[in-house]
Amino acid sequence: MRIIASNVRKGNIIEHEDGNLYVVLSAESFFPGKGTPTTQIDMRRLSDGNKTSVRYKTTEQVERAHVEDMNFSYLYADGDGFTFMNDDNYEQVIVPQDVIGEQSAYLQEGMKCILSIFNGVAVAIQLPARVTLEVIETEPVVKGQTASSSYKPAKMDNGLRVMVPPHIGVGTRIVVLTEDNTYVERAKD
């Protein structure tokens, strides 16, 4: 299936001109005042893990590989990789670290994810857009400090660092965007 370059998203699997399959790590469109708008796509070859970066005109067509997106639940991690269970038939799949990458920090037991399956092998993962994490370390709350544009660093229970508003203290549960690791709001639970 051919799609225009500006519609390519992180996690998509595309078939490059060299005949190999690549998973998209990031896709960013640029719209200069003068000249042709372009889309920069950073991707990793599935066969050997080599990373490459390609720039397309935003209206150019790229071939999106036919992969099957299936719902899985995350179970646990061990020396072999990350184990997921198919929600429909309870079959378990082990996904290697290089497929998950930095997103492994967001994985929580029982989390619903979408795995892209190509020829029986998981080649990419889509996490939920938002996850709830707990602040375990940050500067103390200062009385009278308002939630202005000043943010402070906070360490989360999964080890990630997130910039949070000044009123967020240790023990507070917050919602974080998995796409760019940014604070959204206090958790409502």
Results as ranks from 00 to 15, higher is better:
residue 101 G to F: 10
residue 131 V to C: 00
residue 82 F to W: 10
residue 26 S to I: 01
residue 154 A to V: 05
residue 97 Q to N: 13
residue 182 T to E: 13
residue 29 S to Y: 04
residue 142 V to S: 01
residue 118 F to Q: 12
residue 41 I to S: 06
residue 69 D to W: 14
residue 160 L to M: 14
residue 119 N to S: 12
residue 119 N to F: 05
residue 99 V to T: 01
residue 167 H to L: 08
residue 128 P to Q: 04
residue 127 L to W: 05
residue 59 T to L: 14
residue 80 D to S: 15
residue 25 L to P: 09
residue 112 K to N: 13
residue 139 E to Q: 07
residue 168 I to K: 01
residue 112 K to C: 03
residue 147 A to W: 03
residue 21 L to T: 05
residue 102 E to Q: 14
residue 8 V to P: 04
residue 104 S to C: 10
residue 122 A to Y: 06
residue 106 Y to K: 06
residue 181 N to V: 07
residue 126 Q to N: 11
residue 50 N to I: 01
residue 153 P to D: 13
residue 189 D to L: 05
residue 62 V to R: 00
residue 97 Q to T: 03
residue 1 M to H: 13
residue 104 S to Y: 11
residue 114 I to M: 14
residue 164 V to Y: 02
residue 22 Y to D: 10
residue 20 N to L: 14
residue 14 I to F: 09
residue 6 S to W: 02
residue 23 V to R: 15
residue 123 V to W: 00
residue 182 T to G: 12
residue 125 I to K: 00
residue 131 V to I: 02
residue 134 E to I: 00
residue 74 Y to P: 12
residue 132 T to W: 04
residue 140 P to V: 07
residue 160 L to C: 04
residue 98 D to Q: 10
residue 48 D to N: 14
residue 130 R to S: 00
residue 89 N to I: 00
residue 40 Q to G: 02
residue 108 Q to H: 04
residue 49 G to N: 13
residue 34 K to I: 08
residue 98 D to V: 05
residue 184 V to I: 06
residue 15 E to A: 06
residue 71 N to K: 08
residue 77 A to E: 09
residue 34 K to G: 15
residue 88 D to G: 06
residue 131 V to G: 00
residue 8 V to H: 06
residue 141 V to E: 03
residue 178 T to S: 02
residue 9 R to C: 02
residue 44 R to M: 15
residue 93 V to R: 04
residue 57 K to T: 09
residue 148 S to W: 11
residue 28 E to D: 10
residue 101 G to V: 08
residue 77 A to C: 03
residue 159 G to L: 04
residue 82 F to I: 09
residue 67 V to G: 12
residue 105 A to N: 11
residue 145 Q to M: 12
residue 39 T to V: 09
residue 185 E to W: 01
residue 58 T to M: 07
residue 123 V to P: 01
residue 67 V to A: 14
residue 51 K to M: 11
residue 91 E to D: 14
residue 87 D to S: 10
residue 164 V to P: 05
residue 51 K to L: 04
residue 114 I to A: 07
residue 156 M to I: 04
residue 123 V to K: 02
residue 49 G to E: 10
residue 7 N to M: 08
residue 73 S to T: 02
residue 135 V to C: 04
residue 81 G to R: 09
residue 174 I to A: 01
residue 86 N to I: 06
residue 81 G to F: 05
residue 127 L to Q: 03
residue 61 Q to M: 12
residue 147 A to D: 11
residue 4 I to E: 12
residue 119 N to A: 09
residue 125 I to M: 03
residue 186 R to D: 11
residue 114 I to S: 13
residue 3 I to R: 00
residue 103 Q to C: 03
residue 188 K to I: 08
residue 141 V to M: 12
residue 114 I to D: 13
residue 116 S to P: 04
residue 58 T to C: 04
residue 100 I to F: 09
residue 62 V to I: 07
residue 30 F to H: 04
residue 78 D to P: 06
residue 152 K to H: 10
residue 47 S to L: 15
residue 48 D to Y: 10
